[in-house]
Computed example of a mutant assay.
Amino acid sequence: MNHLGDANLRTWTLRYTALLAADTQDQLAWLDGRELETKDVVEEMELLCRVSEGLAERGAFEAEDLRGLRAIGRRLGEIDATCRVGLWDDALATDSAWDDIRSLARQFLLTRLGDWRQPLPPRPVRPRTGDD
């Protein structure tokens, strides 16, 4: 097992899952006006769900953790292409899929860590403009 790399991926998976589990107001506060595309959120978590398979093989996740991550990945995969277009803050307000994903993420974190309220990932960096 690559302890450092696997530990970092495990931490990122848990933090990103915590972001998906957070209340909508907390998700919007995390965004803090940053423009994050919905497709980027979906693709990041789908990747982490796939990577978790290998992490479980190397002992960074338990086999039973995969059930929760697979459920999140399946639900993300059900978001059609038209709903992936646009900013995530808009999707949070208009697409009920995010309520389902929030529930699945909370269940996973409750099972894995005993509480769904966990540290969120670092905020995305605001792009620099010529005005900065």
Rank of each mutant, 00 (worst) to 15 (best):
R67P: 03
R126E: 12
A97D: 06
A56D: 12
G59K: 14
L20D: 01
W88I: 05
S96M: 12
F61E: 00
R102N: 06
N8E: 10
A18V: 06
S52W: 14
A21C: 08
W98H: 03
R123T: 08
Q27E: 05
G33M: 04
R126Q: 06
C83F: 14
L36Q: 01
I72Y: 02
E64W: 13
R70A: 14
D89K: 15
L19H: 03
L109Y: 04
R58E: 11
T17I: 00
F108R: 00
T13G: 06
P124W: 01
Y16W: 14
R102P: 01
G68K: 05
I79K: 02
A18I: 05
G54Y: 15
P127V: 00
R123W: 01
L19Q: 05
N8P: 04
A93Y: 13
T38K: 02
Q107C: 15
G130H: 01
L48G: 05
M1E: 15
G5F: 04
W88R: 03
D95K: 03
C49M: 09
Q107H: 12
L92T: 09
L9G: 08
Q25Y: 01
R126I: 10
D131S: 11
E37C: 02
A105S: 14
L4Q: 01
D100K: 09
R84Q: 13
E64C: 09
E78H: 13
F108A: 03
L76R: 08
N2M: 13
V42I: 06
T111Q: 15
P124I: 03
E53G: 11
D132Q: 03
W30R: 03
R10A: 03
A71H: 02
A18T: 06
R106W: 04
R117T: 08
T11G: 09
N8G: 09
L9V: 01
I79S: 00
A21R: 10
A63S: 14
T17F: 00
A97V: 06
L55R: 07
E35V: 02
A7M: 13
A71L: 09
R74I: 15
A60N: 12
W12T: 15
V51Q: 12
L55C: 05
D90T: 10
V42N: 04
R74D: 06
R117I: 11
Y16Q: 10
T129P: 00
L92I: 10
D115M: 00
L120E: 13
G77T: 06
I79M: 04
R117E: 07
A93P: 07
I79N: 00
G77N: 09
G59Y: 08
R74H: 09
W88A: 12
L48H: 07
W98D: 05
D6L: 05
W88P: 08
L104K: 00
T38Y: 01
I101Q: 08
L19M: 11
L9Q: 13
P124Y: 03
D23T: 13
G86F: 12
R112D: 02
D6H: 08
A93F: 05
S52M: 09
R126P: 01
L31V: 02
L104I: 03
N2C: 12
L92W: 01
D6C: 06
A60G: 07
A7Q: 14
L66S: 15
G5M: 09
